[in-house]
Amino acid sequence: MPLEGDESGQIVSLTDLCKEFPDGTRALSGVSLHIRPGEAVAVMGPSGCGKSTLLNLVAGVDRPTSGSVVVHDEDLSQLNETGLALFRRRRIGMVFQFFNLLEDLPALDNVALAGQLAGVPTAQARQRARERLTELGVGDRADAYPATLSGGERQRVAVARALMNEPALLLADEPTGALDSASGAQVADLLLALNQRGQTLLLVTHDQMLAERVATRVVELADGAIIGERVLEQTA
């Protein structure tokens, strides 16, 4: 798992970040956050506090109104759409609350797709995808279509896809939000294991239990601003 950060030793540097939507809604105001390689940071807060917006800005799927986002030494404000796509392809993996798998493709091809888009030959991408699925405990479901998978299985497939290109940073937006408690616990264990193997995590969640289980640091967000931060000790 990649652990290297930038020159300052940080993998994510958010400085004075503001985001205002066209309808005038201010989602983030003056947020600064720095994440070191190997950290698992959970961003928590009530609905509408700006958690997902923060995650989208780090992922380069949205642009800040002001402030800077530097991930793995890349200033996202300097990248055009193609540059951002290449950035997402190489540097990050994303896991969503509702899995966001392509319904037309079986699990294997959903995972392999991330590799194929990055230019990995089809056979090699499928081989690597199969390995990822096996590592995450869903190797036997490789040929199943998302509609036939359980919620927990879908999220594992989504995690496998996010890890396909060995990203420096794994972003997870409410990864257990759509799962029952048993499946949620399994996904939490999975994220914890990944972090313990060196994977840097940025997690957005409502779930206190998940944060405490997985995160090494919790950032509290309210009304678009950081109101608190605490370091946790992980329990293996």
Partner: peptide, 16 residues
Amino acid sequence: RRDLGILKSIGMRPSQ
């Protein structure tokens, strides 16, 4: 739209 969003989120370029 959703599929396109997913594909772009995992690195599909605009030209692709």
